[in-house]
Write a protein that binds this DNA or RNA. Structure first.
Length: 561
RNA sequence: CGGGGCGUAGCGCAGCCCGGUUAGCGCGUCUGGUUUGGGACCAGAAGGCCGGAGGUUCGAAUCCUCUCGCCCCGACCA
């Protein structure tokens, strides 16, 4: 492609709005332009890369038996109401204003299930893997980091349909392997974590993560290979040991102790003997949760335990109403009303505990969770922190921020049941289709690649996602007709041989051309200048290593073999 | 949605506190010329309702009120 005729608006200066390297370089190299917060236009050069990534995705999903669909972005809201996600999505879903009943699809489980319901009626029709690479719309409260978090973005989404969970396991595993191939082929350094399935529903899920300061997810990783999203991560901390001395409970005045730290400082109570009380309202019912000492309650885990996303910390009025005391003095003994009590695993069967007396300004000590009160359930509820031992072999956990590139879910039957997608099994019995859902953020692949493959000068593309294979850079076109003739011939020969060639035929000074070439970042620069052609040579520079080879003009084809 | 910052030429910015001629600078763009192995130089030129709406004032980019947009932190994140 002739660069003089191409629209590749490179920027010499840093755009003010871009904070992270990938965003800055995508703007500077002329890949994208922002139109509104979280909304971007892809310019020709950037779109070339996007198309290459999409083609690679198609190859790998086709290879596991995927069949590509093209699904509507406009969806009837009814179908989203049937699965309960119209409400669950809330403001995240765009609603069409001048055509009641239509929404912009933030994802496509509903539509896929709708088609499955229509036509997948027998176990003989399965397994199926259906996918699409399309624009999704999400009204993100805060778009950020360039294309990493937009309101409109490409997603490769595939969905598996199976007759049972064994089949789902196979479909899931196929995707797991395909995803590894995809990210490997894109030269992205990633790791896989166990994840929460959140409002998607389902049982197992894993995320493909790229470690980055710009990441929005937090992960716990350790040298043992343990890796989990902080939402589900656990550590191998020992529970509080039972004390041999187990006296009766005793009320004591704690007028100035509102927090666990106050108790520790004012009364010398060891942190692990404090049972911190936290009250949440879940679907309008109170739940009292006990955490060890200053352990942080993990709301993702709590959500799983409560089975709802509709919960919040209780307010003071509610605290007094249900427990008899305000925050700082709440505990398991002497509660004003009876309601559900749950506790973190680290407190299971613990004794010698200090907790609120449900009278403002008083606590009990010597509480034995087995003897003095009845805890309904124990669960892992705490948020892990750096340095804690990992569950695999106890090596220390590191906490890292990461960008979520892909997410694979075992959905199960949530959507098929909600929408009535049922089939007859070999015994003639009706069952809901067992589904999986597997997403990849297409723009995020590009952004993460650039985050990991750039230098001071610009992007450093690698195949197979580079926008071009080679960049021909003739120097001194005005001064020497010969340079132009040789460059023309190289351009023609390489194009004819199937190379994708960007040809900088512009009448610019060498500095401009070199800087643009490094910024755009095509893997090889073929530099045609008088210095070398008088000896029958050209120069080939590797963008990645910076190494330069002097190559005879007629040996260029061999060079790239 | 809370907190903070910013809207002045295509891009990056100054001017604003302390109101007062034709609103500046750098880059880019256009014309002519000189240059051509790492963003070169000279001369000339075009380009702005100072985000928008009200107000205060003899006079507003500048002061006040309200709005809209963008960025950052937090909340949120299928």
């Amino acid at each position: 492609m002739y660069q003089s005729k191409s629209f590749i608006p490179t920027l010499k200066e840093e755009p003010a709005e871009a904070q992270i390297p990938s965003h800055r370089l995508m703007l500077r190299a002329g890949l994208v332009r922002q139109v509104a917060a979280g909304v971007f236009s892809w310019l020709p050069l950037g779109f070339r890369v996007l198309k290459k990534i999409i083609n690679l995705l198609r190859e790998e999903i086709d290879a596991i038996g995927g069949q590509e669909f093209f699904l509507p972005a406009l969806n009837p809201v009814e179908i989203w109401e049937q699965t309960g996600r119209a409400e669950a999505m809330g403001d995240v879903m765009f609603h069409i204003k001048n055509r009641e009943g239509l929404v912009l699809a933030p994802t496509h489980e509903e539509i896929i299930t709708y088609h499955a319901r229509q036509h997948v009626k027998s176990y003989r029709d399965m397994p199926q893997i259906w996918y699409q690479v399309q624009t999704k719309f999400r009204n993100e409260p805060r778009p950020k980091s360039g294309v990493i978090r937009g309101r409109q973005f490409y997603m490769k989404d595939s969905y598996s349909l199976d007759e049972n969970f064994d089949g789902l396991d196979i479909s899931y595993q196929k995707h797991f392997e395909a995803y590894k191939r995809i990210f490997d082929r894109c030269h992205i350094k990633y790791f896989v974590v166990g994840a929460s399935s959140g409002a998607m529903g389902g049982r197992q899920s894993q995320e493909f993560m790229v470690e980055s300061e710009s990441g929005e997810d937090t992960c716990a990783v350790s040298d043992s290979g343990y890796a989990a999203n902080i939402e589900v991560a656990s550590s191998a901390l020992e529970p509080a040991k039972r004390l041999a001395d187990n006296p009766e409970i005793e009320k004591f005045a704690t007028p100035n102790a509102k927090t666990i730290n106050d108790l520790i400082e004012q009364f010398g109570i060891p942190e692990e003997r404090c049972a911190k009380s936290v009250v949440y309202m879940a679907d309008d019912s109170p739940v009292l949760i006990f955490m060890r000492g200053n352990d942080e309650l993990n709301e993702s885990k709590l959500s799983g335990v409560l089975g709802t996303n509709n919960f919040r910390p209780a307010e003071s009025i509610e605290l007094v109403k249900y427990t008899g005391a305000d925050h700082g003095s709440i505990g398991p003994i002497n509660l004003k009303t009876k309601f559900k009590l749950i506790a973190d695993n680290l407190l299971e069967n613990a004794n010698g505990l200090v907790s609120g007396a449900n009278i403002d300004g008083f606590h009990y000590k010597n509480i034995d969770f087995s003897r003095d009160c009845s805890i309904d359930e124990f669960h892992d509820l705490r948020t892990v922190h750096a340095g804690e031992p990992c569950p695999v072999n106890g090596s220390p956990i590191r906490v890292a921020k990461a960008i979520e590139l892909g997410h694979i879910f075992k959905l199960g039957t949530k959507y098929s049941e909600a929408l009535g997608a049922k089939f007859l099994d070999a015994n003639g019995k009706e069952n809901p289709i067992v589904m999986g859902s597997y997403g990849i953020g297409v723009e995020r692949i590009m952004a993460c690649f650039i985050e990991q493959n750039h230098d001071e000068s610009g992007v450093i593309w690698r195949q197979p996602i580079s926008p071009f294979d080679v960049h021909i850079i003739p120097l001194g076109l005005n001064k020497s007709a010969e340079v132009g003739e040789i460059a023309d011939k190289i351009y023609k020969d390489m194009s004819d041989s199937g190379f994708e060639v960007l040809y900088d035929d512009r009448n610019e000074s060498p500095g401009v051309k070199f800087n643009d070439a490094d910024l755009i970042g095509i893997p090889y620069q073929i530099i045609v200048g008088m210095k070398n052609i008088k000896n029958g040579n050209i120069e080939i520079k590797s963008r990645d290593s910076g190494e330069r080879d002097i190559v005879p003009i007629d040996a260029i084809a061999d060079y790239f073999k």
